[in-house]
Amino acid sequence: MSKTRRDFLVLGLMLAILAVLPLVGLPGWVITYTARIMAFAICAVALDLVLGYGGMVSLGHAAFLGIGSYAAGILIAEGIEDFFIGLAAGAAAAGLYALATGAIAVRTKGVAFIMITLAFGQMAFFVANALSEYGGSDGLTLWSRATLNGTRALKSDTTLYFVILAALVASLGVVRLVTASPFGAVLRAARNNPERVTALGYDVERVRLWAYVLSAVLCGVAGVLIANLTSFVSPALMAWQRSGEFIVMVILGGAGTVWGALAGAFVVLALEEGLSLATQHWKIAFGALLVAVVLFTRGGIAGLFDRSAR
C-alpha cells in the first residue's frame, strides 16, 4: 500500500472513531471534552497550512480563534443568535484581522515574522481585555447557544459535537484541496526557495498572505464553535501560550502531513489533561518534554518527521 493511501486510511479511521464516539454511551463530559479537542484540532489543521506547508512560524494563531469566538459571543449577547450568522461573522472577523496584520507580517521573514505575529496576537488579547462592555478580562458568559434555523438544536451537546466534527472534516478537506492545488504547490515551493518562485513570476508575499488569511478563517470558525460549546468567551482563549500550544500540536503530530495536526491536537490535549491529573505543576513536565524532544532527537523534531516522511 502506498504511503499516501495508508495516510488517508489512518485519517479515515480517526474520523470514523470520532463519528461513533457519541453513540457508544460514554459519559457526557467525554463528549464535550472531545468536542473541545476537535475544535482546537481545527486550529492545528489550519496552522499546519501556514506552518507545515508554508514554512511560516506564526506565533499568533490563538488570536484568530479568540476573534472568532468573540464575534460569535458578542452577536449572541446582542441578541443575534443565528448560528450561521455567527459563523460567518467569526470567520470574516478573523480573516480580516489576518489580512490587515498579515499584510505587514509577510513582508518580513524569519525571526521578525515570529515576533510580529506574536505581537499582533497579543494586541488582540489586550483589546479583548479592554472590552469592559463584554466582560473585560473576566470574559463573557453567553446565556444561550446559537440557534440553528431558528431551533434550539445546538442545546444538545451531541448535536453540537457533530457540527464540530463536520467543521473539522470540512477544514481537513479545505486544507487538503488547497495544498493539492497550484496555489498549494507555489506555497510549498516558496517555503523551499522563495527567490526561485519569485523568478518564476509568482508573488510570494501574496501567496503567503492568502494562506495566512485562509488559515485564520478556519481558526475563526473554530472560535465560533468553542464559544457555543462552552457558552463562554474570554481573553484567555487568545493568550499567547495557546499559540505556542498550537505549534506544539502541529509539530508533535507532524507538520505538512495528512493526519499529523489532528493527531497532534489529541496527543497534546490528552497529555495535558493526563499530566494535570497527576500533578498541579504539570507544565514543568510538559516543558521539559518539549525541550528534551527538540534537543535529543537528531535534527530536532523537524528531523524526526523528515525521516519518517522519506
Partner: peptide, 20 residues
C-alpha cells in the same frame, strides 16, 4: 515539478486554490 511551476506561471490558473 520545477518546470511545471514555470509553465503554470504563464497560465491564468496559476494560483487556483483547488486542484487543476
Amino acid at each position: 515539478e520545477n518546470v511545471v511551476l514555470a509553465i503554470r506561471s504563464r497560465s491564468p490558473g496559476r494560483l487556483m486554490p483547488v486542484p487543476w
